[in-house]
Design a protein around this nucleic acid. Structure first.
Lengths: 199, 199
DNA sequence: AAAATAATGAGAGCTACTCTCACTTGGTAG
DNA sequence: CTACCAAGTGAGAGTAGCTCTCATTATTTT
């Protein structure tokens, strides 16, 4: 149960990690070059020098190569680590500050490109919307813990829905604008919600 | 350019409408009986007594048979018809009252069953989430018109995001609970949002 | 009744995805 | 170091959603 494996031990593990990364890298590259729909799994497999069958041993679907969010776990961990005296919104905004500090700029660049791809290609956007639904459960859980209420509580879930909603709007807006810094936009969105959504 | 065709004129049109309805009816029935994933397009086509090719002339995808929302246009029309002195939220709630009065109970029963199906089956839920994204644009447009602001305005879009978010949460909650009346739950959710989301 | 137009069915073809089976490669125990 | 075991791989067959083409049939128009 040691929770920091970090270093892949055997040769087998290292190879697997490398294959996995190669698939993802080539998939993303091809998606950018040719578009998502025009890229076949066979092409990705060929580029990564594996057989098509092996592709599906590493990823359950073609989508999955783009749909993993590498920062999700980091974000959850950071959220849980916020001091308990913060309000749910306060904790949320503090979490994003933490992220902004922790993630190096070049990684964030990749992430930004991935986001634009995912939100622009209709097939992928459909899939990513589902993650927002999961986000409601997640946020409701965090807020419940912080306020001592149940995660099924109507008010808590509704609050989580509103937060996810403004984040959704922010992402959709940011994906359309190449200049936008997603984290800043989200922070503004959450602040606006916290202020009672003045129109 | 007459914009009220309403009555299907020729025999051809009537037949098409009947075929379309038959496909949808059998599709929904089969989905309920066997599950969405276990039902093939060929089965639907056979039940509706058409060829598989014809199926795709009527619906672009298998999903589309369940994913149309028959009340969407009614809802938009009702929203546009609300008196201009109402606030955006006020107009929204008034719109839902209108709907509740206009739609007969048996139709609403069907709609309710459709909702449960769509929100339970993972493949369908993914697809329906995308409609929420469209909902943001739609609501932003309505709110913009009502407040004299641009539909691109950050505050307007953010407000629309929050509303869509709480509606999403309400739908997800209502889909899990067979007893829930979706319209009531949504109305409560919007009221809670309007009150500043007290936890 | 003939000509123009629209709907249909049959069928070929593509791609995502699943499953099975034989083969190879990396880890390990004697 | 060798012999064995387990894990990883590739080849290939099969299913289902979806697209496209083309000949046939049904409806409408003249």
């Amino acid at each position: 149960m040691t929770s920091s494996p970090a270093e892949p031990t055997g040769l087998r593990e290292r190879k697997k990690a490398r294959t996995r990364a190669a698939i993802q890298r080539h998939a993303l590259r091809l998606f950018h070059e040719q578009g998502y729909g025009a890229t076949t799994v066979d092409q990705i497999a060929a580029a990564a020098e594996i057989s098509p069958s092996t592709f599906f041993r590493y990823f359950p679907t073609k989508e999955a190569t783009v749909l993993y969010d590498p920062f999700d776990p980091v974000l959850i961990e950071a959220a849980l680590a916020q001091p308990p005296e913060l309000s749910p919104i306060g904790a949320l905004r503090a979490t994003m500050d933490t992220i902004r500090e922790q993630i190096p700029a070049d990684l964030w660049e990749d992430e930004r490109r991935r986001q634009m791809l995912v939100f622009r290609e209709p097939e992928l956007r459909t899939a990513v919307m589902d993650k927002f639904a999961e986000g409601i459960d997640l946020l409701a859980g965090l807020a419940a813990r912080r306020t001592g209420r149940s995660a099924d509580d109507f008010a808590v879930r509704n609050w989580a829905g509103a937060v996810v909603g403004v984040v959704m709007a922010a992402f959709l807006g940011a994906a359309a604008d190449p200049e936008a810094d997603t984290l800043v936009v989200i922070d503004e969105a959450v602040a606006h919600l916290d202020a009672g959504l003045p129109l």
